[in-house]
Structures are given as structure tokens and as C-alpha cells.
């Protein structure tokens, strides 16, 4: 979609893109949009690109150490110019402007050659070369060490990101699967649903049941307290004439429950659901006070 005029939203996008303050995804989207030919966005981007570049003039000038210039010239001499190698080498071969205007670092020594003789000059050249090589070796070693540690850090960060993503995917898959189970029961015409409400002793308890009366199964989900040692949370269905134990609930470490239990046939007419805390071998009569209870609709 091409824009017809610059809005504040467009200006914000262009400004953040020019600043480099978008996430990679946002920046890529904006690039694609400009590539599709939105002249408005492109004009806004160029306007801000000038501004960002102009901000670079606000930093105070600082003279770089003299040896950086020597290193630079040595580097381009060594690495060449990949885009136009032939021209570069021909310029040097012909004693081009590089050598005329910016003589090599050894040239002051060459000027003293006539005064002191060749052996002395050669000695100085050797010393200079050794010093340069030692400096280069040190710089290369330091650069390699830095690169190595950066790569290690990146690798560790990538690994951590991947583990986090795997956790998220696993969590999302789990949630999706649970939601599927709930929906499968909720779509049954014979489904009955009850809400579990925390009672006075445990007001933070909350949950729900999804009862598939055709399959005689109930899906229980809720947030309870972790089960104390030697105890068990037990689910009950109450009918007008009986209190039927359905099964034990097993909350995880955080007290969350999501599980399916078989419902005894005698619970068919149940109108209420209750959760109690019982001894770990269960009980046939629910112990009061109840932890959570609710009506089954």
C-alpha cells in the first residue's frame, strides 16, 4: 500500500528506521514497503537520514594517534582494493601519486642513506620491520582474542535464545493441547460444566470441571495449593442422595491441576462438585471444611 501523504505515524516509522532504532522485523517491513515504491515514506526516510548524518557532527573532534594512519596505509597495501585491484596495483607499480605524495614510513631513513652508508640504513630498516611485525602480531592476536570471546558470547546467547524458544514452543503446544481437550468436551451436547470456588479456609482455590457424561470422563482444571505431605486432594460429585468420590487430584509444584478422571456411573445425577483435602489413601466420606465447591450445570 502506497501512502498519499505523510502522517505522524509515517514520520515516526521513517525516523526510527533512519535512527536504526527499530527491531529487525520492523525495519525489514519498512524496507519492503519502501521497495514497493512508496515515495512518501522514502522521502521521509531521506529527510531523516540527512538529519541523523548531521548529528554525527555534534561529537567533539579528537585526533587519532599517528600510528593509526600507518596501520591504515599498511593494511590497504596488504589487502588491496577488492573492487578495483588492477587500477590500485598499476598505480603503485607506476610510482603513482600514493608514493609521490605519501612516502613510505622508511623514507626519512632513505634520505640519510647518503650520509651514513648502506649497512646502517639496512640495520635500521630491519629494526623497523621487526618492530612493525611485532606490533602487527600483537594487534592481530588481540583482535583474534576479542573476536573469539565475542563469538563465544554470541554462541552462548544464541543457545540461550534457542532454549527459551523451545520452552515457549513446548508451553504453547501444551496450552493448545489443553484447550483442544476442553473444547472437545464443551462441544458435546451432553457436556456438563461446573465451576469450583474456593471456600472460607482456602479462598484462593479456583477451577472448573468439564464432564463428558457420554464417555463418563471429567476434565478437571484449577489452581490449588500444593498438596501437603501425607495428604491428597480429592474430587467429589454430590447428588441429592449421595456423595461419590471421583478420584485424587495431583497439583503440580505450583498447585496447578489439569487432568482427566473417570466418573463412576452412580454419579450420573450429580448436581455439585467438591474438592477436599484427605489422608493420602483417600476417603469415602468427604472431610470438612471443603477446599472448593460449586454447582454442576
Amino acid at each position: 500500500m502506497k501512502h498519499e501523504r505523510a502522517t505522524e505515524e509515517i514520520r515516526e516509522l521513517a525516523a526510527l528506521y533512519a535512527l536504526g532504532s527499530m527491531t529487525q522485523h520492523e525495519a525489514r517491513s519498512f524496507e519492503i514497503h519502501m521497495q514497493e515504491g512508496c515515495a512518501i515514506c522514502e522521502a521521509e526516510y531521506h529527510r531523516f537520514a540527512h538529519t541523523i548524518a548531521a548529528m554525527g557532527f555534534a561529537a567533539e573532534e579528537v585526533a587519532a594517534p599517528d600510528y593509526i594512519r600507518d596501520l591504515l596505509l599498511a593494511r590497504i597495501e596488504r589487502e588491496g582494493q577488492s573492487a578495483v585491484p588492477a587500477t590500485a596495483s598499476s598505480s603503485k607499480a607506476e610510482g603513482g601519486p600514493a608514493q609521490e605524495k605519501y612516502p613510505p614510513a622508511a623514507s626519512p631513513l632513505l634520505s640519510s642513506q647518503t650520509k651514513r652508508g648502506m649497512p646502517l640504513i639496512l640495520g635500521w630498516i630491519c629494526v623497523g620491520a621487526v618492530l612493525m611485525m611485532a606490533f602487527w602480531a600483537f594487534m592481530s592476536w588481540r583482535s583474534a582474542q576479542e573476536t573469539k570471546s565475542q563469538l563465544k558470547a554470541q554462541q552462548a546467547a544464541a543457545k540461550a535464545d534457542m532454549e527459551e524458544l523451545q520452552k515457549q514452543i513446548s508451553s504453547q503446544t501444551d496450552k493448545s493441547s489443553r484447550l483442544g481437550e476442553i473444547l472437545a468436551i464443551a462441544h458435546q451436547p451432553e457436556a456438563r460444566i461446573g465451576r469450583l470456588i474456593g471456600q472460607s479456609a482456602t479462598p484462593s482455590y479456583a477451577g472448573a470441571i468439564f464432564w463428558d457424561t457420554k464417555m463418563n470422563q471429567v476434565l478437571v482444571m484449577g489452581s490449588f495449593h500444593p498438596t501437603p505431605q501425607g495428604k491428597v486432594h480429592q474430587l467429589w460429585f454430590f447428588s441429592p442422595t449421595a456423595k461419590i468420590p471421583v478420584g485424587s487430584l495431583m497439583p503440580d509444584e505450583s498447585g496447578r491441576v489439569f487432568m482427566t478422571l473417570s466418573v463412576p456411573k452412580e454419579a450420573a445425577g450429580a448436581t455439585a462438585v467438591v474438592v477436599t483435602l484427605e489422608p493420602d489413601n483417600g476417603a469415602q466420606i468427604p472431610t470438612q471444611p471443603y477446599c472448593a465447591a460449586g454447582r454442576i450445570d
Binding site: 557532527f57 579528537v62 585526533a63 593509526i68 596505509l73 578495483v84 590500485a88 598505480s91 601519486p97 600514493a98
Partner: peptide, 19 residues
């Protein structure tokens, strides 16, 4: 491929860019 031009550019602008 004129390396002297790069040297000149460096001489003229290194203070700005280094800062």
C-alpha cells in the same frame, strides 16, 4: 585505486570521525 587520496581523506577527516 589511488591510495594517496585515502591518505588525504584520512588526514582531513580522522579527527571528526575519531571523535
Amino acid at each position: 585505486g589511488d591510495s594517496s587520496a585515502l591518505a588525504t581523506l584520512y588526514d582531513k577527516t580522522n579527527r571528526l570521525l575519531f571523535g
